[in-house]
């Protein structure tokens, strides 16, 4: 039997009289790679902030990683992983210092951090970079390290906010292979992207339009429903319906 790592009903966020997120309802299963798509301004960031426990919904309810979005948002923060292209590692800290810092923030003991750091650097083939300042790492390495740090505390779910923006095409694909590995280990992956080819790599995809989820299914099923050759075309058909200005 599968368990649900995200389960939300009618989740809504209003800023004054503007409804950024408008009654969204969906579930994400354990170990699933869930793509969260939408045009700029469709409400993705606001929705993600609520799921991560850093923004209180105006209405609606739900759980993330087994904790209540409204009453246990502090526990949610401690039990999820997060990574974005814009911010993930401290450039002026060394590789091991970044791992130590994030491990500490997530409440791991020094001993656990030390053991896991060795294992991680070994697995990534990063042993010789242990003392390298992160700003001197090539971008592709940074991405790998950032993702590994985001799941270092073995969260049930990791949120990836445009993790591959600006990345080399080959690196982008290597990064997705890491996502698959994490999913195979049972970590649920919740990912936003503007690359429509990456939408195909998700088990299921939702597309937000004007604060609502207007489509949610497997990529193949969405292509069939919209009579489209690619996810890019599905996205265009849906985004064209948007009324609210970006």
């Amino acid at each position: 039997m599968s368990t649900r790592v995200i389960e939300v009903t009618d989740l809504t966020k209003k800023f004054g009289n503007f409804t950024a997120v408008d009654h969204i309802t969906f579930d994400v299963e354990e170990g699933e790679i869930f793509g969260f798509l939408g045009a700029n301004g469709a409400g993705k960031t606001t929705a993600m902030q609520m799921l991560c426990g850093i923004s209180m919904p105006t209405a609606g309810a739900g759980t993330v990683a087994g904790y209540d979005i409204i009453r246990e948002n502090e526990l949610i923060k401690r039990n999820i992983g997060y990574m974005s292209q814009k911010f993930s590692l401290y450039e002026d800290l060394r590789v091991w210092e970044n791992i130590r810092l994030f491990g500490g923030i997530y409440g791991l003991t020094d001993k656990v951090i030390a053991t896991k750091t060795d294992a991680l650097l070994e697995r990534l083939n990063f042993r010789e970079e242990r003392n390298t300042m992160v700003k001197y790492l090539p971008l592709g390495w940074k991405q790998k390290l950032a993702f590994s740090v985001a799941i270092f505390h073995e969260p049930k779910i990791v949120f990836l906010d445009e993790p591959t923006g600006g990345v080399d095409p080959a690196m982008r694909r290597q990064f997705w292979e890491m996502i698959y590995e994490a999913a195979d280990q049972g970590i649920t992956v919740f990912v936003t992207t503007h690359y429509m080819d990456e939408a195909e790599y998700c088990n299921r995809v939702s597309i937000m339009v004007d604060g609502r989820i207007d489509a949610l299914d497997t990529p193949a099923e969405l292509r069939r429903q919209f009579n489209a050759d690619s996810m890019d075309e599905v996205f265009r058909q849906l985004a064209r319906k948007a009324k609210r200005g970006d």
């Binding site: 045009a39 996205f235 265009r236 985004a239 064209r240 970006d246």
Partner: peptide
């Protein structure tokens, strides 16, 4: 310089 970074496919077009 990278006018479309972080921009969705429809706005990019």
């Amino acid at each position: 310089d990278e006018p479309t970074t972080g921009v969705d496919p429809v706005s990019r077009k």
